[in-house]
Structure formats: structure tokens, C-alpha cells
């Protein structure tokens, strides 16, 4: 009971912080915060596969990219498309990509899953470049119109104002994160963890493992798509390097590891740490990635639970936590 109260308190604190940010900060800091939030949602969606289902994806960017390109395309090609339906199209196209690929992806795990996702994201990269008349190729798509938000009985809210857009996107992102969190607490969430820990048992219990995996993949892709879609609106631009480049699949993975595997909220901390780190290094862009990679290596080597484990260690709850960490992710994964 106490634990759950704490969790609600954490959620409330994060929300309160996000909603008061525009009062405290200027446009630049606000943009930074929103950019970080988008990547936090992206990392959370990847974490759904990574921490809860035990699948390491090297190509999660393709779902992010589907969301971004879906939204950008519908806004470019379709006059009068509303804001929410543009986001819906983005999410739906990511889910569609996931569902099309799922018959191939659900059968494998471990390294094969990693390599297969990487192969698919490479194919997507090459395809986006080939259809440059549609996607803008290397130039990407930019400057598409961003429609105002229509709220019945209230009226139009202009999205070209930074503050309005911030409140809107933070709400979408927060809602998505909450739904995802809720998803992990449903009975289906437990199936997910069981698939990771002991897929055979799930089969004995009468659940269809490949089907369940496909559903998880779809959900994860859908939220990655929402993140991509908001990203396209936020930047008012989609570029192939930005959403499908070599680092775009690795960045959320790195966020998950730095934040802490085996927890839901870990990637949020990871993204926060990453953003702050890059910000601190902004005067020396040449060395930023080097420092970033060294942080990743040290986390993997010395702090396998990431920032969350560090926090737990500091609050001297680390023994409890270590047990929790080990039961949560490290034990008994029999999948090959």
C-alpha cells in the first residue's frame, strides 16, 4: 500500500514538474525538456521489449521512424487533417509495420532477434532513400503545416506557440507513458514477464506465446510511433539520419541501460542523464559522444542496474533492490 502510494506520488511529482516548467524556463530549456520527454517515451516503449519481455531490438528506430514519416506524410499530402488524427496515423503506421514484421520476429529471440531487427531497419533506411520523391530522401521532409488543436466547445488552440505545443505534447506523452505503465500491471503484463522468464510454462498455461509476443511488439511499436509522431510535429521536420541513422536505435537502448534495466521508470532517468550530459558537453561536441560511450561502458561494467541501482544503493535499500533486480530480470530466462 505504502509502495503504491509512493509510486503515485512519483507520478504526481513528475507531472507537476512538467506542467510548471513553462512558467520557470525560457523557450530553449522548454524545447530541451520536450525533446528529452519524447526520447523518454521512445526509450520506455523499447524498455517494454527489453526489460519486460527480454528482447533486445537493434532496430526500434524503424517504429519511431514510421510514426514520424506517417505523421509528416499525412500532414503534407492531406489538407485539413486534424492534429490528433495525424498523431493517430503515425501510431497506426508504426503498429502496422510491427504487425507485418511480427510473423518473422516472434519466432526468434536473443541475437537473432537483434540482428533481424537491425536488418529490417536497414531495409527501411534504404527504402526511404529510394522513395525520395515521397520522403524527401536525404533532405527529409520539413515545413509541413501543423494544424491547431480543436477542442469542442472551447475552440482552436494555436500550436505554433511554443508553450501551447509544449502543454499539448507533454499531455500526449504523459498519457502514453501512463497507459504503458498500466499495461504492465494488467494480467497481460504478467504474461509478458512470464514469457521472458519461462515461455514453456506460459504455453502450458494455455496462452499462445507467439501471439502474445506479437501483441507486445505491436504495443511497443505503437508507443514508439506516438513518440516519433510528436517528434515530427515538434521538429516540424523528419530526416532519415535523425530517425533512422545508426545511432537512433542505439540511443534509446543506451538510455535504458544507463537508467536501469528491470524497472519501468529507468529509461526516463536514463534519458534525463543523457540529456544533461550532452548539454554539459555542448561546448565540446567533438568529445560528447566519447564521454557518452565511456559512461555506457562504466555502467555496464560496474553498475548493471543503472542509475536506479545507484539511487537504491545510496538510500541503502540496495540489498532489497538487488534481490528485486535479480528476480526481475536476471534469473531464469530460459529462452535461447
Amino acid at each position: 500500500m505504502k509502495n503504491s502510494f509512493r509510486k503515485w506520488l512519483l507520478w504526481a511529482a513528475i507531472l507537476a514538474g512538467l506542467y510548471t516548467a513553462p512558467v520557470l524556463f525560457g523557450v530553449f530549456e522548454l524545447n530541451l525538456l520536450l525533446g528529452a520527454s519524447i526520447f523518454a517515451l521512445f526509450s520506455l516503449s523499447l524498455n517494454l521489449l527489453l526489460s519486460f519481455t527480454g528482447l533486445l531490438s537493434f532496430g526500434h528506430a524503424m517504429f519511431f521512424a514510421s510514426g514520424a514519416y506517417g505523421t509528416a506524410l499525412v500532414l503534407t499530402r492531406l489538407d485539413g487533417c486534424s492534429l490528433l488524427s495525424a498523431i493517430f496515423v503515425g501510431a497506426a503506421s508504426a503498429v502496422l509495420v510491427a504487425l507485418v514484421l511480427s510473423p518473422l520476429l516472434v519466432r526468434v529471440g536473443g541475437h537473432t532477434f537483434a540482428m533481424l531487427t537491425m536488418a529490417f531497419s536497414q531495409i527501411m533506411y534504404a527504402t526511404v532513400m529510394k522513395f525520395s520523391h515521397l520522403t524527401g530522401g536525404n533532405d527529409g521532409m520539413s515545413g509541413f503545416p501543423i494544424p491547431p488543436l480543436v477542442i469542442p466547445a472551447v475552440g482552436l488552440i494555436d500550436m505554433s506557440l511554443e508553450r501551447n505545443f509544449y502543454y499539448f505534447s507533454i499531455s500526449i506523452l504523459g498519457l502514453s507513458a501512463w497507459v504503458m505503465w498500466f499495461f504492465t500491471r494488467t494480467p497481460f503484463g504478467s504474461i509478458m514477464v512470464s514469457i521472458r522468464d519461462n515461455p514453456d510454462r506460459v504455453t502450458y498455461l494455455g496462452f499462445n506465446v507467439p501471439l502474445s509476443k506479437a501483441i507486445i511488439l505491436g504495443v511497443s511499436a505503437g508507443f514508439a510511433g506516438v513518440a516519433g509522431s510528436v517528434y515530427a510535429l515538434f521538429q516540424n521536420m523528419v530526416s532519415v539520419d535523425g530517425v533512422l541513422g545508426p545511432l537512433s536505435s542505439f540511443t534509446p537502448l543506451i538510455n535504458c541501460f544507463i537508467g536501469g534495466l528491470g524497472t519501468f521508470i529507468g529509461p526516463v532517468f536514463g534519458t534525463g542523464i543523457g540529456t544533461i550530459l550532452l548539454e554539459l558537453m555542448s561546448a565540446h561536441p567533438e568529445q560528447a559522444q566519447l564521454v557518452f560511450s565511456l559512461v555506457l561502458i562504466s555502467v555496464v561494467l560496474f553498475l548493471p542496474g543503472g542509475a536506479i541501482m545507484l539511487y537504491w544503493k545510496i538510500t541503502s535499500r540496495w540489498i532489497v533492490l538487488r534481490n528485486k533486480f535479480q528476480t526481475a530480470i536476471l534469473k531464469g530466462n530460459h529462452e535461447s
Partner: peptide
Amino acid sequence: IKGDTATQPVVAKRALQRLILK
């Protein structure tokens, strides 16, 4: 004042916002 684009539009946009706003 240097703004690093890393030849990526997204990074460039962030760098420009920093140059202009900050």
C-alpha cells in the same frame, strides 16, 4: 560561436536554437 550540426538536420536544428536563443 560554434554550433555543431554533426551533418544531421535534427542536431543542426538544436544547435541553431542554442545559437539563437541562448
